[in-house]
Amino acid sequence: MNGLTARLMVFTSGFIVMVLEIVGARFLGRDFGGSFFVWVSQIGVILIALAAGSYLGGAWADRAQRLRPIGVCLLVAGLFTALQPELAPPLIVSIVARHPADAPIPMVWQKLDPVLGSAVVFLLPALALATLPPYLIRWSTGSLGRLGRSSAAIVASNTLGGIAGVFVTGYVLLDVMRISSIFRLMGALIALLALCCLCADRLGPRGGRNLAPLPAAAGASTDCS
């Protein structure tokens, strides 16, 4: 896999994560209201997914050294995302309906219920997408001597995708598309990323499996005497 393909893929994954985050606040608002806690929950859950996904992706890349597992994982995440308009509502309603009607919801649950709702809908896809950048750093890096530059390019592309996701969603998508259609589109994009991973796996690595070591530094010496 060449660097450009890897950068395009992580740009897309960052884009999808932020589209889901912004759309998610709207999606959850119908059941949890317009409270401040909905945004807090949404941001918190997405960051948990990004942290966990990055860690798992890095560990997985070292161990598996193939793109097929992450491709399968993304395929499941894509299907899950596309089906959210049907899957999520009964689960979210059950979170709200467990509190007795006509009695105030305790403050702790006013804060934590949106976290549960957000986790139900967004934890899995965001986590799967967050495994991609560390995986592709490993996959697209030819030698340890270029590790800094290639990892920076992957991280920057992922962040740029996220920035695009925020503005495109806020300024365009919500005005022209239904929320359910946005979920389907993002599900399709995740599936596309999955197919890219599966194809790259079949075509073989560019060099990420066994990184060439750093050349010995000029003048370096092990002589300590």
Binding site: D31, G34, V96, A101
Partner: peptide, 15 residues
């Protein structure tokens, strides 16, 4: 006065 989101209040109220 009830401190709540208006829609959530309506969803949960039976009045």
């Amino acid at each position: 006065v009830v401190i709540s989101d208006g829609r959530m209040f309506l969803q949960r109220s039976r009045r």
